[in-house]
Design a protein around this nucleic acid. Structure first.
Lengths: 154, 154
DNA sequence: CCAATTGGTTTTATGATGCAACCACACAAA
DNA sequence: TTTGTGTGGTTGCATCATAAAACCAATTGG
């Protein structure tokens, strides 16, 4: 088989995430969903993508438990696509992508929006990684350990 | 043209990040590079990917300023691929992807490694988003604002 | 100097993507 | 009830990207 390799069985959590989110459109669909879009046509209009691949992506996101189909909302007989908790949980990923672009993009002047604290209207700080005891960690302060086996793993 | 749409000119910073990182292999190559891999063969062995597409991806990452080619390191005449500051700056993205998988994956028992604080060996906390004044922010506490125009923008 | 390793490129097959056309259904007006 | 319109897709192609394997040049190692 020459299929595009799937990382579904990989043991690396990054690869497993990419299996669900790693194509060109999924994260942008999620971004729009976080912004409040729900309907097929809304996504299609906003993202300007082909309708067939939007349909495929939406189905895949539903299959992955990131979106769920809701029967209605404004009374019409059409259905909507709403984020699940798993879908809303991608928020830090989107923030990390955004901040990387803000910090390293070659043409930052083309970036249209900034993420701000709603209360004060001031930019948010960079994402912080902390130890259990609250110490701020840099990448070099971290390392990988094998996952401790759960007792009586089914 | 029917090319895979590029987000290079998009004004959304997330789309711009995806333009550089959004394919199936780039983030995994970066992950291995953060882990210390440098040589073509090391990447190829570890990731098990086809050599032709590895070559294409490495070139693209170099073009994007994420990797740089260094002439040597162990004295051999071959070249190495090392992360730039821009490349190392992807660390939070990888952490966010990892944590999303740890929190929401359907089969978390298949995840092999956990990210720990090197000093204490304890798992790191979830990435935190804070306001300028240090208040911890949830997604609902944030909003997007148009980027303030730089004076005398060239 | 010979053989194996490294670091790729080329070739070929197939899957994914994108555009356009088509179509079923819901809904509204006549 | 028929007609029309918009929504939410599906179906055909044409093209592009990806993958596996074969091939190849330069670099080592002996």
């Amino acid at each position: 088989m020459v299929k595009r390799t799937s990382f579904e069985g990989d043991s690396c959590p990054i690869a497993r995430s990419l299996d669900a989110l790693g194509d060109w459109w999924s994260l942008l669909i999620i971004r729009e969903a976080l912004f409040g879009l729900r309907r097929f046509g809304e996504f299609q209009n906003k993202l300007g993508m082909a309708k067939n691949i939007l349909a495929v992506r939406l189905r895949a996101l539903v299959d992955h438990g990131i979106l769920a189909t809701a029967p209605a909302s404004d009374g019409s007989a059409y259905q909507e696509y709403v984020l699940t908790a798993k879908g809303r949980g991608t928020f830090p990923i989107l923030v990390a992508l955004r901040q990387w672009s803000e910090e390293f993009d070659d043409r930052p002047e083309e970036i249209a929006t900034i993420l701000v604290d709603r209360e004060k209207g001031r930019p948010v700080r960079k994402l912080e990684m902390r130890a259990e005891d609250g110490r701020l960690l840099s990448p070099a302060d971290t390392t990988l350990k094998p996952r401790p086996a759960r007792r009586r793993s089914a």
